[in-house]
């Protein structure tokens, strides 16, 4: 029990540091971190709580850094259309795999699983080649389009759709519901947990994307938060912690709200057919 408590404290500690650190004033901040910031000698310290907590850095970031909003907006423009596209494309595909038997299903589903487990680096060249050919490089669409056809959400949702009792679907079918109706009236509401799980896992992944924008977007004004944050200059390091907090808040809140779904989403990836 004590080990568990120690380990969980250690795990959560970084979050604590980032959040409390964001309330340091710039004086306290540069005092604590000057050795790291300027590469001079001396020790850094990160007080457990700031000595002189202040919202100054927040005000500076939120009121005086228009650039931050542009970047935040860039992240939104890349993440939400991707999620929406996945909803439109992946949900029906998952329904198809879960509900029907058709020729080639096994092999196609195997392809989906293989694609799901390939790291970004494997498909990086080929994605580049196709984005180049259709002139989408260096735009938000360079991130969105490949994300929409990710097979990962399909895989997750198939497992949830399969758990819907067949008798329920059959009963509705006998009542004269067409395939589309079955999908809308039974599939989506009964599989909602799976859809939410997939969306939460995908949000965390897309919001954290680094490889894709780094390689497919050259124009820095189109960069998302992930690439902008580490680039905040040393002189402005004070606001970098605030920016970090602002960035992690949406993800953290979504996580705390949807932890149950997140866990289910992870669990189903472990269940065998």
């Amino acid at each position: 029990m004590i080990i568990l408590i120690l380990l969980s404290v250690l795990t959560v500690l970084p979050l604590w540091f980032v959040i409390t650190g964001s309330f340091m004033g710039s004086g306290e901040f540069s005092g604590n971190f000057k050795t790291v910031l300027n590469d001079t000698t001396g020790k850094v310290s990160w007080p457990f709580l700031p000595l002189y907590p202040t919202l100054r850095s927040y005000i500076e970031l939120l009121l005086d850094s228009p650039k931050f909003f542009i970047v935040f907006w860039n992240s939104c423009k890349q993440v939400f259309p991707s999620l929406l596209g996945q909803l439109l494309i992946a949900v029906p595909a998952a329904w198809s795999f879960a509900r029907f038997h058709f020729k080639g299903k096994r092999i196609i589903f195997t392809i989906y699983i293989i694609l799901m487990v390939m790291p970004f680096q494997v498909t990086m060249v080929s994605t580049y080649l196709v984005l180049d050919r259709i002139h989408l490089l260096d735009s938000h669409l360079a991130i969105i389009i490949p994300a929409i056809f990710s097979t990962f959400p399909v895989f997750i949702m198939v497992k949830f759709f399969k758990a819907i009792p067949r008798s329920l679907i059959e009963a509705a079918r006998i009542d004269g519901a067409g395939e589309w109706k079955l999908f809308i009236n039974i599939g989506i509401p009964m599989g909602a947990g799976g859809i939410i799980s997939a969306m939460i896992l995908d949000f965390l992944e897309l919001y954290n994307a680094i490889e894709q924008p780094l390689n497919f977007i050259k124009t820095t004004s189109l960069w998302p938060l992930t690439l902008y944050l580490p680039g905040i200059s040393v002189q402005k390091a004070g606001i970098s912690l605030v920016a970090s907090v602002v960035m992690l808040l949406p993800a953290l809140l979504l996580f705390l709200y949807g932890q149950k779904y997140l866990e289910q989403g992870i669990m189903v990836t472990g269940i065998k057919e």
Partner: peptide
């Protein structure tokens, strides 16, 4: 919850912390 939290924290948000933790001083 405590062990899952890192999953929700974007890497970029902890870059500065990591630098401070693992710096020479």
């Amino acid at each position: 919850t405590s062990f899952l939290i890192p999953l929700a924290i974007p890497v970029s948000s902890v870059v500065f912390l990591w630098k401070v933790v693992f710096h020479q001083n």
